[in-house]
Amino acid sequence: MSASTLELRVVEARTLNPLIRLLRLRADDSRQLPAYAAGAHVRVRVQTGADDSAVDWRHYSLVNFSTARNATQVPVEYVIAVRLEPAGRGGSRFMHERVQQGDVLTIEMPKNDFPLHTGPGGTVLVAGGIGVTPLATMAARRRAEGLPVRLHYAGRSRDTMAFLPELQAMLGDDLQVHADADAGAPLDIEALLDACPAGDRLYVCGPKPMLDAVLEKTQARGWTHDRVHFELFSAPVVEEGDQPFEVELAQSGQRFTVPAHQTLLDCLIEHGCDPMFDCNRGECGVCAVPVLEGEIDHRDYVLTAREKAQGNVMQICISRAKGARLVLDM
């Protein structure tokens, strides 16, 4: 343990449904844990290989349903929920299959890249799947403050959607549940936005297709950036048409082929490079790298339209090459 990490014991490990597992973490001496605000997450140390040598970190939002005003200011436990990603890099499988009640996990202090803003107007929360976790805490915070809040919670089917009883008990008629299997179609984003008064702020957390749809439709309506807040809750996915490409590192002269199924970041790490990165979702900007040659397929949520058009920097965790080759200044 260091000054920036905590060693917490798993006091409860419970399967909520075939895809989602809840873990409740506490200190052995039951001491108060560092405070956090709605939208915060912790990074958890995971093992991604068969032995203990392959170590990585994964982000999990902190979940709170208490509407007490100080619930997240004086916590004695952290609650996280982990979605199983069978085709992922192994972190979720570790959390689902190997972590048991009584085990000790190393976590970093809470961090918040998805803060809940204060001020007039209502709060509209839009959750897709496991993206409900930070939004549930936001809903509890708004209830604690006596401020208006509505949650739209979408998923493929009700049996894969976590925390429905808790959310219903907390929000009542302010919870709108959409299951694709029941409705026969995805959540109607246009209708949702039509029902938002001018002063409402929108908070969106879910998979990339949902986030892309919401951002596209709010931008088409002229909604300003300070009105739409988001967090992506999925790792980069292979998109239709993705092709292998060559990457050259100008400073060392090394050349690698990035397969269609692999991110540029993962390819560099696999070949012994040590690039900076954090979110792995194209949101934080930490992994930005200058590009000297080649056309970039920008897939991030950090760069402005002008920066993307200039084509001289990319977020290597999620963006790719449009052509056959990229030359990076690294």
Rank of each mutant, 00 (worst) to 15 (best):
289 V>A: 01
227 R>I: 05
160 T>D: 07
201 R>P: 01
229 H>F: 05
180 D>I: 07
152 H>P: 04
297 D>L: 04
122 G>V: 05
256 F>S: 00
248 E>T: 14
255 R>I: 12
22 L>P: 11
15 T>Y: 02
88 G>Q: 03
49 G>C: 04
318 I>S: 00
125 L>A: 14
11 V>I: 09
93 R>S: 09
45 R>N: 10
314 M>I: 09
92 S>P: 01
147 L>F: 11
107 I>C: 10
114 F>I: 02
132 V>W: 03
217 K>C: 07
111 K>P: 00
306 R>P: 07
112 N>Y: 00
30 S>K: 14
37 A>H: 10
212 D>R: 05
184 G>D: 04
246 E>N: 06
286 V>W: 13
28 D>L: 05
45 R>D: 06
172 G>R: 10
80 I>A: 07
282 G>I: 12
244 P>F: 02
289 V>I: 12
30 S>V: 08
319 S>N: 06
161 M>C: 05
107 I>T: 11
87 A>C: 10
259 P>H: 14
260 A>H: 07
301 Y>Q: 09
211 L>D: 05
185 A>D: 00
183 A>P: 12
157 S>N: 09
183 A>Y: 13
88 G>E: 03
268 L>M: 02
122 G>Y: 00
314 M>S: 03
168 Q>P: 03
19 L>V: 02
144 A>I: 00
4 S>E: 11
220 A>V: 03
305 A>K: 11
29 D>M: 13
222 G>F: 03
211 L>E: 00
147 L>W: 06
64 N>Y: 08
62 L>Q: 06
309 A>H: 15
229 H>Q: 05
5 T>Q: 13
199 G>V: 04
130 I>H: 15
322 K>D: 14
216 E>R: 10
231 E>T: 09
139 A>Q: 03
209 P>L: 11
72 T>L: 09
151 L>I: 00
27 A>P: 05
114 F>H: 04
76 V>N: 15
162 A>F: 03
300 D>A: 04
294 G>K: 08
132 V>K: 01
194 D>P: 01
134 P>Y: 09
88 G>W: 01
229 H>M: 09
207 P>E: 06
117 H>T: 10
284 C>L: 14
155 G>A: 15
283 E>V: 07
104 V>I: 15
326 L>G: 03
204 V>K: 07
199 G>H: 04
51 D>P: 14
178 H>F: 01
51 D>F: 12
302 V>D: 12
285 G>F: 09
234 S>Y: 15
72 T>D: 04
274 D>E: 14
151 L>K: 00
96 H>S: 07
121 G>R: 00
291 V>M: 02
105 L>F: 04
256 F>V: 01
161 M>D: 03
87 A>N: 13
176 Q>M: 09
201 R>I: 07
99 V>T: 00
290 P>Q: 07
122 G>H: 03
17 N>H: 11
135 L>T: 02
46 V>L: 09
23 L>T: 02
167 L>S: 11
296 I>C: 04
197 P>N: 03
174 D>C: 11
260 A>K: 05
204 V>Y: 08
210 M>K: 10
